[in-house]
Design a protein around this nucleic acid. Structure first.
Lengths: 334, 334
DNA sequence: CATGAAAATGAAAACGGTTACAGAAATATG
DNA sequence: CATATTTCTGTAACCGTTTTCATTTTCATG
C-alpha cells in the first residue's frame, strides 16, 4: 500500500503539507492541494488509521460492548448505535461481553488498548459497584447502559424498571386477575431484580400474597420461556402471566397453546420490551415498550460529548410505556 | 497512561527487553523478567494496541461486515463469529453495511484502514463481479459470505440456494399443492434470485405454470411479510405459501390468521432459514435449515488461515436441510 | 584460565502518520 | 519601495511500539 511519503515524493511536497490537505488543517495553496490530490488518486493512497490515531491521540472510534448477542432489542440497539456513531462521524466497534462480567471487563480493556475515544457498555452482569469503580478509573469515558448508577448519573442510562414492572402487574390486577404468574430473567441480573421488585410491590399494594411458586426463571430466550411456562403450568394455576421478555412470552405462547389454553381467554399474557415481533404475534402481545432507540441515542451522544471533553449533564431514567394489544383481557375464571 | 518507557525506567532495562517479556520473544533472564513484571504491575501498564499494530504489521483483528443488523440468523451468525474469533485469538470488529453496496465498500475500506488482518463480508447487495474485483485488489484477505464466486472458490462461502428453494417447493408439490404462492426477499439480491429460480424450476418440472401474481416481494422483516401476505390474499388464492425468510413467515402467519385461515388446514406455510423462533411458532414452522454456524465457522477459519499466509482450500457450497414441522400438510382444498 | 558458544541486553531504525515551530513567499500597507 | 502581515511550506520531534543487529555477559569446556 502506498504511504504518505510516496505521496510526498510524487507531489513534491512535505509530509506536513500532505497532512494539511488530508485533514484540512492549515492553509494550502490551491495548486499544491490539487497536486496532492492527484498524487493520492494515482497512488490510490489511503491514510493508515493506526498511525493517524497513534499520532493524533484520537481514533474517532467508539466501542460498544453488549452483554451478549441475544435478547429482544439487541438488533434495534445495534441499528441505532450504528446510526448514532455515523452521525457523530465516529466508527463503531462492536464487541461481545459473553454474558460474563470478567469477559465484559476484558472487552473494555481491549477497547481501551485500541484507544477508543469512548465506550458504551450494555452490561447485564457486572455488579454496580464494580462498574462505578471501573468508570472512575478508566482513562476513557464509559457510559453504562441498563443501569442507574446514582453515584455517577452522567455515566449511566437506565430504564425505570421497578415502575415499569409495577405498571404491567397493576394493569392485570385492575382487570381482576389475582393469580398472576411471572417468568423472570435470571435473578442475579440487576435488571431482573428490579422488575421482580415492581411485580411484588404491585401485588402487595393490592393485598395479594406473592407466592414464590408463581415465579419461574428463564434465560431470555424463546426455548427458556417455553420451558418455564411448562413448569408453571404443571405446578400452579394462573389466569395471567407476565414475562420479563417478549422472547420468553413467545415461548410461553407455545407452551400455553400445547396445553389447549387460549390467550387471552384462558390466560392473559404480558410481555416486556416491545420487540418487533410483539405486534405480529397471534394474538398480538401486550407489553412494556422500552425506548431502546432513544436510550441508545442518548448514550452515544453522551459518549461523544464526553470524548470531546465537553461537560455532560446527568441523565434521568427513561420510562417504559404500556402497549396494550390483544393478549390481555379481564379475568374469566380464577 | 503509563507507557513502555516508564516501564523501562522503573525496571532499569531497555524497550527491547520489555517488548521481549511482553511478547515472549527472545530470551530474558528470569530476574529481569520479574523486574519488568513488577514495573508493569505497579504502573498498571497496558501496551498501546495501536502502536503495537503499527510496528508489527499485525493487529490481531478480524473485521466482520453485515449487510445490516436485521435478518433471521444474524444473531446466530454474530454469536458464532465471536466464538470463532476468540478461538483464533483474534479480536472481532463488527460493522454495518447499511444494506447498501456503497456503504459496504466504505466499511471494507474502514477495516482496511484499521489494518484488520482479515475481513469477513456478509453482503446481500454488492454485485458478484464487483465483489470479485474487490477481493482481488484488496491488500487484506476477504471472505465473502452468502455468495458462490466460482472465480475464487477459496474466498466465498455459499449456500446452495437454488436447490434449497427447489426442495421446499417440490415438497409442497408432492403433498398435492399446485397453487403455491411465494414471498420473496428483494429480487435485486442475488440470494433472492437464486431462491426464486429454485422455486420456478420446481414448479416447471411438474408442469405447473409459474404465475407472477403469485409472487410478492417483502423486505425480510416481519411487517413486510405481513403486508406481502395480505396483498397475496387479496389478489390470488393459494393452498401453500413459501416464504424466503422465517421472519416474513411470521408476518404471514398473522395475516393468514386475520383472514381466519388456519395453518396448515387452509394454507401450508414453508419458511426459510430455520430461525430460532421457527420451532416455537404456533404451528411450528417447516423451514429450510441453513447451517449458518458452520458456515460462519468455516469463514473465520479460512480468514485466519489466509491472514497467516497459509494456503487455503476452495470451499464447496453448503446444503440446506428441510426441517418439517407442523405448518405443512397435504392439500385439502384447491 | 583462555576460549568459544549461548544467553541476555541495548541502540537505533523502522512503522506511518501529526504538529509545533520557524522560515520563505506572497500580499497588503503606508 | 520598504515594511509589516498574511499565507504557505518544510524541518524535525514525537506518538508507543517492534525488530534487526551488534555488543556484552555468562557459562561450559578443554
Amino acid at each position: 500500500m502506498a504511504t504518505m511519503v510516496d505521496v510526498c515524493r510524487l507531489a513534491g511536497v512535505s509530509k506536513a503539507t500532505v497532512s494539511r490537505v488530508l485533514n484540512n488543517t492549515g492553509p494550502v495553496k490551491e495548486s499544491t492541494r490539487q497536486a496532492v490530490y492527484e498524487a493520492i488518486q494515482t497512488l490510490n493512497y489511503r491514510p493508515n488509521g493506526l498511525a493517524q490515531a497513534l499520532a493524533s491521540h484520537r481514533s474517532d472510534t467508539v466501542g460498544l460492548i453488549l452483554s451478549n448477542f441475544t435478547g429482544s432489542y439487541f438488533g434495534t440497539l445495534l441499528r441505532q448505535a450504528t446510526r448514532s456513531a455515523d452521525e457523530a462521524g465516529k466508527q463503531l466497534i462492536v464487541t461481545d461481553g459473553h454474558d460474563d462480567p470478567k469477559r465484559e471487563l476484558d472487552a473494555v480493556n481491549m477497547l481501551v488498548d485500541r484507544r477508543c475515544d469512548a465506550i458504551v457498555l450494555y452490561s447485564r452482569h457486572m455488579p454496580d459497584d464494580q462498574l462505578v469503580q471501573l468508570i472512575r478509573e478508566l482513562p476513557v469515558p464509559l457510559i453504562a447502559m441498563n443501569r442507574y448508577l446514582q453515584a455517577i448519573p452522567d455515566r449511566s442510562i437506565a430504564l425505570a424498571q421497578v415502575s415499569a414492572a409495577h405498571m404491567a402487574t397493576e394493569y392485570l390486577l385492575n382487570l381482576g386477575h389475582r393469580r398472576i404468574a411471572c417468568i423472570t430473567r435470571p435473578v442475579h441480573q440487576p435488571t431482573a431484580q428490579a422488575r421482580l421488585q415492581g411485580y411484588r410491590e404491585a401485588l402487595l399494594a393490592r393485598g395479594v400474597k406473592v407466592e414464590e411458586t408463581m415465579i419461574e426463571e428463564g434465560a431470555n430466550t424463546i426455548p427458556s420461556g417455553y420451558e418455564a411456562c411448562k413448569k408453571l403450568l404443571d405446578r400452579v394455576s394462573f389466569s395471567a402471566l407476565v414475562c420479563f421478555t417478549d422472547y420468553m412470552a413467545e415461548g410461553a405462547y407455545r407452551a400455553l397453546s400445547e396445553k389447549g389454553l387460549r390467550i387471552p381467554d384462558d390466560v392473559s399474557v404480558f410481555g416486556f420490551d416491545d420487540a418487533p415481533v410483539a405486534a405480529y404475534m397471534v394474538p398480538a402481545l401486550s407489553t412494556i415498550h422500552v425506548p431502546i432507540e432513544e436510550m441508545t441515542r442518548t448514550a452515544f451522544e453522551q459518549a461523544v460529548r464526553l470524548a470531546a471533553g465537553k461537560e455532560a449533564p446527568p441523565i434521568a431514567p427513561f420510562q417504559g410505556r404500556m402497549v396494550l394489544r390483544e393478549s390481555v383481557s379481564v379475568v374469566r375464571k380464577n
